[in-house]
Write a protein that binds this DNA or RNA. Structure first.
Lengths: 110, 110
DNA sequence: TCTGGTACTGACAACTTTGTCAGTGCATTT
DNA sequence: AAATGCACTGACAAAGTTGTCAGTACCAGA
């Protein structure tokens, strides 16, 4: 009985990974942790990522409550994404992951 | 140009995730962090996981230097996997991930 | 009016990961 | 001698993820 990571898994590690796992999610969150950005700004800040993937990841992150989508009523339409209160609790975890990642990249070079 | 996570990515977050990402790796590492186990012991301790997947994950973890495979010369053959020195540096990161995961599981229930 | 930008959606192809299953070599037990 | 357990490998199918591409609706500027 295959159990996808996207399903509710009782394992906390999997629960956490299901949130940040996705080809570009780490990078997206990293960018957003420095401040809110518009869809197109995010898009341009990660050149290899397609718009399709960006939007898919953004919507998943919104669903998980990590980021917030704010549509400004101005004309031209503007959509801004920012890290939520709840999402902020994730940033230190990301930093821990990142610093071990740096060590690991060093480690592999040898 | 699709870039798999398994390739060398310069992003430290991806580098870290490429190590622990895998359907059962979190659970395997969790078990092994409590002490060395034989292949078949690990296999039985995670009922939903197939032997094939166990061995694939184990070999990847060995390649990444996280765990060590020790084949005892005894007859009947015995293979033991244990967390390496280097792998120990990863355990606190796993704990950070895990505790956020627990919070997230709570969060989702509401 | 035409072009271009923003923020998307849907369909589908390509690629990756995971699962299934059969089979190997060796050793022990019955 | 046959069955069982251990630690695997290889081939392939199923499922999941990502990429490509076309298209929508709205608005601004030349």
């Amino acid at each position: 009985m295959p159990v996808s990571k996207k399903e509710v898994s009782p394992c906390p590690i999997d629960a956490m990974l299901s949130v940040i796992d996705g080809r570009w999610k780490g990078t997206i969150l990293w960018r957003l942790s420095e401040g809110p950005l518009r869809t197109s700004e995010l898009r341009r800040s990660i050149p290899d990522m397609t718009e399709r993937m960006l939007i898919r990841h953004l919507h998943e992150l919104v669903e998980d409550g990590i980021i917030i989508r704010v549509q400004k009523k101005t004309t031209p339409q503007q959509v801004r994404y920012s890290i939520s209160e709840y999402g902020r609790t994730l940033v230190p975890v990301l930093e821990t992951i990142c610093s071990w990642g740096r060590i690991h990249l060093q480690h592999k070079k040898l």
